[in-house]
Write a protein that binds this DNA or RNA. Structure first.
Length: 481
RNA sequence: CGGGACGUAGCGCAGCCUGGUAGCGCACCUGCUUCGGGAGCAGGGGGCCGGAGGUUCAAAUCCUCUCGUCCCGACCA
């Protein structure tokens, strides 16, 4: 027994770290608070990025790139923004052996430098909407860090758009929240809540922040993506103006939205088990691993069969053969399970004699129910369907768990009890007051994760959990990462 | 920055209380036997015990200082 993963139930935090390190997603770096993303983690991010990029393009966006350094004065132009980000900014004061005239902030997010450029690019209503996205790294000087979930430097995408009207900007912000939700559901197999942040939780400088929130296996919530309606706050700060059709000068309306490598952490915490990483087939860098099983004199024949199978499947799925000699099959089984490969094909003399392979699904391990025999001739037809089935099962399982851990409550005492004993999403009435929100946070460590949108089932009036005042709708509370 | 713990081989740890010159598991290297769920045996390499100072004939062990890491809070994608 080489590598063991701490059981989830014993120490969730340790379990998570074990999986990230042992699956080979990432490693600690020599720089405190930073992280090295290893090839498996990067391949996963690249797959996420490819799908997101496609979705961004389908909604009319293009990629661009803006500088890492932001003049410090830019950060000060929007007062809420600087208040929110100044404490966590890394600042460059020297360059080329000399003290800089004006310090440069390493971007914690790029609104300021992007809208400074937009001011130059936008003159007329004909220049709108301007819909750009950039893939970049950002730096935030965090006190405490955790692999993928919160590191001082992380990779993300940030979309920044400018529109002629408030309605268009609002539509865009909601659209991108929905894009994120669709991505999480269809590719990560991760169900999310959608909604608006309370004022206390919204982005520094935004009018309104939309978000998707997912529930992890320890029943804590994770903010998986945000989309902000920035109103005209940045347009006014950076003089982003255009001449309208009627000839008047108007400020533009902006949105910004982003997801980060935190999604990899979300993926780990959403699906993995005590055997290691579990990856949804649509994002798995390797979807199928073929493991040959042989005695010394059978090697040549079995490895040839393995290569044949890889060749048959290659046009249809991301498949690899593991012909490493001197390792027993059981070791390879465990290793690929730890790395989260959704489907394993075992090929041995017994299978070959019958013209078939043994197929094992990653996420189900108990008993032999997880294994089945499939004829080699039908592999190309069967395997893609199996992968889709796994993808669907992962989602169903996550949704079932999320729903089972969402509680509708009306009593504050019960709320405190449930948050302490069970966790999960607590759907309760809130009057909208900052005092009530702060009191819940203070007393239970739970925050409002999101306020469901109009038309949601939760939009039924009631009385506030804390003060008993009128409440327009229930909101989702949870303890969060 | 407050509260707690820990620094001994690549990783995980024991040894410390009661000082005597460093050990275990995994990983790594070599050989043989193995190979349908983390192989067995034999042999081998690898450490200024986080750093500095002190006590002592003698310090991983006792004392002082220092540096670093992790966990719990405040902050956060």
């Amino acid at each position: 027994m080489a590598k063991l993963i701490t059981p989830r139930s014993e120490d969730y935090s340790r379990w998570y770290t074990d999986i990230v390190l042992q699956a080979g997603l990432a490693d600690y770096s020599p720089v405190r608070g930073c992280m090295v993303i290893r090839p498996l983690g990067m391949a996963l991010w690249e797959n996420m990025r490819a799908e997101l990029d496609r979705m961004f393009r389908e909604t009319g966006h293009e990629n661009a790139y803006f500088p890492l350094f932001i003049p410090e004065s830019f950060m000060h132009k929007e007062k809420e923004h600087v208040k929110g980000f100044a404490p966590e900014c890394a600042v460059v004061t020297h360059g080329g052996g000399q003290k800089l005239e004006e310090p440069l902030v390493v971007r914690p997010t790029s609104e300021t430098i992007i809208y400074a450029m937009y001011a130059k690019w936008i003159q007329s209503y004909r220049d709108l909407p301007l819909l750009l996205n950039q893939w970049a790294n950002v730096v935030r000087w965090e006190m405490r860090t955790r692999l993928f979930l919160r590191t001082m430097e992380f990779l993300w995408q940030e979309g920044h758009t400018a529109h002629a009207t408030e309605a268009e900007a609002e539509e865009e912000a909601v659209r991108m929240m929905n894009v994120y939700d669709t991505f999480a559901r269809e590719f990560m197999a991760m169900p999310c809540l959608k909604g608006v942040k309370s004022d206390a939780e919204k982005f520094a400088g935004a009018l309104r922040t939309y978000c998707i929130e997912a529930l992890m296996q320890d029943n804590k919530a994770l903010q998986a993506g945000t989309s902000h309606n920035l109103g005209q706050n940045f347009a006014k700060a950076f003089e982003v103006k255009y001449q309208s059709e009627s000839g008047g000068i108007e400020y533009v309306w902006n949105t910004s939205w982003g997801v980060s490598t935190r999604l990899i952490g979300a993926l780990v915490m959403a699906h993995s088990d005590d055997q290691g990483l579990v990856l949804p087939p649509r994002l798995a860098p390797t979807q199928v691993i073929v493991v040959p099983i042989y005695k010394e004199n059978e090697r040549e024949q079995v490895v040839a069969a393995m290569n044949r199978i890889v060749a048959i499947l290659s046009p249809h799925v991301r498949v690899k053969g593991d012909a490493r000699d001197g390792m027993r099959p059981g070791f390879k089984f465990n290793e690929w399970e730890m790395k989260g490969v959704p489907l394993r094909l075992e090929v041995g003399p017994r299978d070959l004699a019958a013209g078939q392979v043994t197929v094992a699904r990653r996420a189900v391990r108990e008993g032999t129910a997880a294994k089945q025999s499939v004829s080699i001739d039908s592999l190309a037809d069967v395997v893609p369907g199996l992968l889709e089935e796994i993808q669907k099962d992962l989602y169903d399982q996550a949704l079932k768990r999320r729903d089972a851990n969402t509680h509708t409550l009306d009593s504050y005492d019960e709320f405190k009890k449930v948050i302490e004993e069970k966790g999960g999403f607590l759907l309760a009435h809130w009057c909208g007051g900052v005092e009530c929100e702060a009191r819940v946070k203070e007393e239970t460590k739970a925050t409002i994760r999101c306020i469901p949108l109009q038309g949601d089932l939760a939009a039924v009036p009631g009385v506030c959990l804390v003060c008993g005042g009128p409440s327009p709708r229930r909101v989702y509370f949870a303890r969060a990462y």
